[in-house]
Amino acid sequence: MYRGQSGMWSWLLHRVTGVAVLLFLLVHIVDITMLGFGPTIYNNALSVFATPLVRFFSLALIASVLYHSFNGLRILIIDFWPAGAQYQRLFAVLTILLTLAGFISMGYFVLLPVFQGCPGVTCG
């Protein structure tokens, strides 16, 4: 009923992506704190995010945020719509499809400067 099926994998992915997003949030709070040290320190710290390597890492963040968001909606539907649990496999598939659609369209823009050789923007 549960083990090895869509519900277990959704639960596991929700937990893993949740921890990943939280860890990034803590890093992100540290980097915005650099704002309080003035423009030089902030701009130096933030330039790291434009490097190709960190752009690839940010793809993992975007995928995690999108999966966690859409899977959260799936949980809400199953919790609050009495018939929701009957369609749990359909919702699990929809969650993956929506995540992929959002990930591909957003990832395209994140990596575009790298593939174009960074015209007009600094890639670090």
Partner: peptide, 18 residues
């Protein structure tokens, strides 16, 4: 999601400066 689109799609990360 709005924050991500604003900071990573509408603007490039390299534009996030002081």
């Amino acid at each position: 999601v709005i924050h991500l689109i604003f900071m990573h799609v509408a603007n490039d990360v390299s534009q996030t400066s002081y």
